[in-house]
Design a protein around this nucleic acid. Sequence first.
DNA 1: GATGTTGCTTCGATTTTCGAAGTTGCTACG
DNA 2: CGTAGCAACTTCGAAAATCGAAGCAACATC
Lengths: 118, 118
Amino acid sequence: MSASVRSHADKEECDRGDAALTLAFTILGQRWSALVLGSLRAGPAGFRELSRAIDGLSDSVLSDRLAKLTQARLVRRRVEEGPPVSVTYELTDHGEALMPALDQISAWAVEHLDLPPD
Amino acid sequence: MSASVRSHADKEECDRGDAALTLAFTILGQRWSALVLGSLRAGPAGFRELSRAIDGLSDSVLSDRLAKLTQARLVRRRVEEGPPVSVTYELTDHGEALMPALDQISAWAVEHLDLPPD
DNA sequence: GATGTTGCTTCGATTTTCGAAGTTGCTACG
DNA sequence: CGTAGCAACTTCGAAAATCGAAGCAACATC
């Protein structure tokens, strides 16, 4: 049997695994990343504005997420020297392209998850 | 000024926050949850099969995720007494309803993320 | 000068996840 | 009958991720 034949387990992973989804969730599966992206849907925002918009998110993690999302080219960091210095984060085209999927997840959650009462 | 008037910060959160997306990502934002759901798209599977299908996922976390997804009614755990005992996990209607969004995320990742070469 | 805001960084504490080892109950085989 | 292997998990110490408070420089405002 030639070496190119995959084992049963490899075949299973091929059938059930989804490399693209796996890659997507190396980013989205990190706590708060999806919500940071979702928050930018409303337009560019500064650090403090994002911090206020997302309850429970710590500054150090926000900083980390913005760096990682920028590195993944989903977010662009724009600096205006001022004074005072002004930094805004905005979605790139790659980031914008994810918004319909996040909308779909939102709509799904309304329909299929138990939202807690206000 | 009446007590019902929200502060500016509350208004910001209202404009940028998305309670439904936030709720969705309390589940999907936990490492591996989305991939477990995505893996079940191919049909019901047992614990080992899921473990093999998702590279890097530890048994204790898989057990935890399946319990939480079952509790959230996205997954159903079906036991056949046997002998031998046989347990399979399958998507509920709620879980099925998420699949189009996960498909969309997959397609987005292919287009907009840098997949590593094989 | 004091206070507040922006845009972060630092660091010890806490939580989450990992990974190996283990358990029970079965099947298959010599 | 004993051994090996598999399924379906559980346990627990180690490692990684996240939290939360405090801090900093550079500005604006009073």
